[in-house]
Lab assay of single mutants.
Amino acid sequence: LSIEDFTQAFGMTPAAFSALPRWKQQNLKKEKGLF
């Protein structure tokens, strides 16, 4: 994903996403259907 696509999909920047705990990242991916 481009940074723009990522931000649009997750509502945050890739840097903010990577700062989240691993379990939170997994849950967000599942919610968006990317996992």
Rank of each mutant, 00 (worst) to 15 (best):
L1E: 13
L1I: 15
L1W: 09
L1V: 01
L1Y: 11
S2N: 15
S2I: 01
S2W: 04
S2Q: 06
S2K: 06
S2C: 05
S2L: 01
I3M: 13
I3A: 05
I3Y: 13
E4A: 03
E4V: 04
E4F: 04
E4H: 00
E4R: 02
E4N: 06
E4M: 01
D5C: 00
D5S: 04
D5A: 04
D5W: 00
F6T: 07
F6H: 01
F6M: 03
F6R: 02
F6A: 04
F6Y: 15
F6V: 00
T7Q: 06
T7F: 11
T7E: 11
T7W: 04
T7H: 05
T7G: 04
T7Y: 14
T7C: 08
T7S: 07
T7L: 11
T7V: 11
Q8M: 09
Q8L: 07
Q8S: 07
Q8I: 09
Q8T: 13
Q8N: 09
Q8W: 02
Q8D: 06
A9M: 09
A9C: 07
A9E: 14
A9I: 12
A9K: 15
F10G: 09
F10P: 07
F10R: 03
F10M: 10
F10W: 05
F10Y: 14
G11V: 01
G11I: 00
G11A: 01
G11N: 06
M12V: 04
M12F: 05
M12W: 01
M12K: 01
M12E: 05
M12L: 04
M12P: 03
T13K: 00
T13H: 07
T13W: 00
T13D: 13
T13I: 01
P14Q: 09
P14M: 06
P14K: 09
P14G: 03
P14L: 07
P14A: 10
A15N: 09
A15P: 02
A15R: 08
A15C: 06
A16F: 06
A16S: 09
A16Y: 02
A16H: 06
F17C: 05
F17I: 04
F17R: 06
F17H: 08
F17V: 07
F17L: 04
F17G: 07
F17T: 10
S18A: 14
S18N: 12
S18Q: 07
S18K: 10
S18M: 13
S18C: 09
A19E: 15
A19N: 13
A19W: 01
A19K: 13
A19S: 11
L20W: 02
L20C: 01
L20D: 10
L20G: 05
L20T: 10
L20F: 01
P21N: 01
P21W: 00
P21H: 00
P21L: 02
P21R: 00
P21M: 01
P21T: 02
P21S: 03
P21D: 05
P21K: 00
R22W: 14
R22L: 15
R22N: 14
R22V: 15
W23M: 09
W23E: 15
W23A: 12
W23Q: 13
W23P: 07
K24M: 12
K24I: 09
K24S: 09
K24Q: 14
K24G: 03
K24Y: 03
K24T: 09
Q25D: 03
Q25R: 04
Q25N: 02
Q25E: 04
Q25M: 01
Q25C: 01
Q25G: 01
Q25V: 00
Q25L: 02
Q26R: 08
Q26E: 15
Q26V: 12
Q26K: 11
Q26C: 09
N27V: 13
N27I: 12
N27G: 07
N27D: 08
N27P: 01
N27E: 15
N27R: 13
N27A: 14
N27Y: 12
N27S: 14
N27M: 14
N27C: 09
N27H: 13
L28P: 00
L28H: 06
L28G: 03
L28W: 04
L28T: 02
L28E: 06
K29A: 07
K29T: 07
K29M: 14
K29R: 10
K29L: 11
K29P: 00
K29Q: 12
K30A: 11
K30E: 12
K30R: 12
K30Q: 12
E31C: 07
E31D: 10
K32Q: 11
K32Y: 13
K32L: 10
K32P: 09
K32I: 15
K32S: 11
K32M: 10
K32F: 06
G33T: 05
G33S: 11
G33W: 03
L34R: 12
L34F: 06
L34G: 13
L34Q: 13
L34A: 13
F35S: 07
F35N: 14
F35K: 00
F35P: 14
F35L: 13
